Simulated assay, not measured.
Amino acid sequence: MATRDAGTVEAVNVGEPREVQAGDHTVWTAIWKHPVDGRVALRGVNLDGDDQADRTVHGGPDKAVYAYDAADTAWWEAELGRSLGPGAFGENLTVAGVPVSEAVIGERWAVGSTLLEVAQPRLPCFKLGLRMGDPRFLKRFAQAARPGAYLRVVREGDIGAGDAVQVLSRPPHGVTSALVSRAILGEPELLDAAAAAPELPGELRAWMLERAMGRGR
């Protein structure tokens, strides 16, 4: 397969679940990620040293690795007026040179010795608001249409900062992570178009198609 685009891993970020104060109670979350040095093994559905607090909504085969574009982080830094740095959005891979939110669902990336496939956008939950110190941030994140992308593992291996990110293939349907995010989070008229990507997780795609049909009645 010929390389379409190439970028670079700026940081590999991992984190274990921890207790965080949320109002008058505590919650478990692993959204706080930190960069690590050296090669990091990717086995099953996690990088070494990484985990999820609630696997009913996070992690699993279709959310094994979360990638975010360093350019989008820089955009948010300008919007928020403060430094964020790698891992600020709970991403495992902070990448440069590949517009992650515009990645096509089903496109495949060679990163280090791994092979990854774009599966779906990140749909924000209240824990992103905790991470940013502002519960209203969820609405801002949705409106910005800069969701990054979750990737599934096609081939296990290891990844390190400085590795190339090579886009090896891209499905012709053209449905991007950002388009799916927009369809689900605020523009339901896009659901039909967004559901045209057969590589979306089955349950998510079925929900999108059902909701789109309901709009047409």
Rank of each mutant, 00 (worst) to 15 (best):
M1P: 10
D5Q: 15
T8L: 06
T8H: 05
A11R: 11
V14H: 12
E16P: 15
P17T: 02
R18A: 14
V20G: 10
H25T: 08
V27P: 07
T29R: 14
T29G: 15
W32N: 04
H34E: 12
H34I: 06
P35Q: 15
P35G: 12
G38I: 07
R39N: 12
V40T: 11
R43L: 06
L47S: 10
D48A: 08
Q52S: 01
T56F: 08
H58T: 00
G59R: 05
G60E: 04
D62H: 09
D62Y: 05
K63V: 05
V65Y: 10
V65T: 13
D69R: 06
A70C: 10
T73W: 15
W76M: 05
E77Y: 00
A78R: 14
G81L: 01
S83Y: 09
L84C: 04
G87L: 01
G87A: 00
F89I: 05
T94P: 07
T94I: 03
V95C: 15
A96K: 13
V100Q: 08
S101F: 08
V104P: 11
R108H: 08
V111K: 03
V118C: 14
V118W: 07
V118H: 13
A119F: 02
P121S: 00
G129N: 15
G129D: 12
R131V: 09
L138K: 10
L138Y: 11
A144C: 06
A145E: 10
R146S: 05
R152W: 07
R152E: 13
V153K: 11
R155P: 03
G157W: 09
G162N: 04
V165W: 01
Q166T: 07
G174Q: 14
T176L: 06
L179S: 02
R182T: 00
I184D: 01
L185F: 03
G186C: 02
G186P: 06
L190E: 14
L191R: 10
P201N: 02
P201I: 01
P201D: 02
L204N: 14
R205Y: 00
R205F: 00
A206D: 09
W207S: 15
M213E: 11
M213K: 14
G214R: 12
G216R: 12
